[in-house]
Design a protein around this nucleic acid. Structure first.
Lengths: 110, 110
DNA sequence: TTGATTCATCGTAATATTGCAATGAAGCAA
DNA sequence: TTGCTTCATTGCAATATTACGATGAATCAA
């Protein structure tokens, strides 16, 4: 049905899934990598950088902003985006706890 | 159009997106967490554990297996699943490199 | 053999995602 | 004001995902 039964999972599981979902598209990965690489606000040139149409980029930026991973500030006719470091680190802790489960586990047995 | 333009992104970006996409559903997160917690093969009881119908669980397991994160071995009428530790660690390195980008970056400026 | 169990696959309905043209909104320059 | 630039939003088509009933395949027990 295209709809996930989120109510039968824990908040932690749903949170991991939400963050992962936003990383589940290469355009959003590319946007984030570009913002980190430039290491400052990016004003406007994301469309040329990524190579998708302007409405498509705008939509991906909206999803990243909705999760709090980036923030934008209006500068005249342009909008400048950058990583929200504080929220990025919060997200990272949640994802690291998930990815590092293997540290507690022994080994595969099959 | 529901289809991602993977060809305009790097292999690394597409790989991060593929791993993230599989973590983008709480049922798959729950399955992986259960496999780690049990720390051995899980034979059959995943349907009761997760709370989705058997075909749905089977479909999620197939996606996890397709990415190499779990492996299954047939034991009689049952199938036993466990984490593929080697591939999990490979995946983890790729994801950690992405999540740890902030270590190189300075700070947000907006 | 028959019946029961377990899991995969098929088929399908409901919903979500992706991408972009068209359009709108807001600011700046002249 | 007009025109230009930049980005967001709307609307829509194409495709993907999620979920599950029905069914199939394989194994084991009797």
């Amino acid at each position: 049905m295209g709809i996930s039964k989120t109510e039968i999972f824990t908040d932690q599981q749903n949170e991991i899934a939400l963050f992962s979902k936003v990383f589940g598209h290469p355009a959003r990965v590319a946007i984030l990598q570009h913002l980190f690489r430039i290491d400052t606000c990016v004003c406007g040139d994301l469309v040329e950088e990524i190579g998708l149409a302007q409405p498509t980029i705008s939509q991906h930026l909206k999803e990243l902003k909705h999760l709090g991973l980036i923030k934008g500030s209006i500068e005249g006719t342009r909008v400048c985006y950058c990583i929200d470091t504080e929220n990025w680190i919060k997200m990272k802790h949640i994802m690291l706890a998930f990815l590092n489960q293997d540290l507690k586990a022994k080994a595969d047995c099959c």
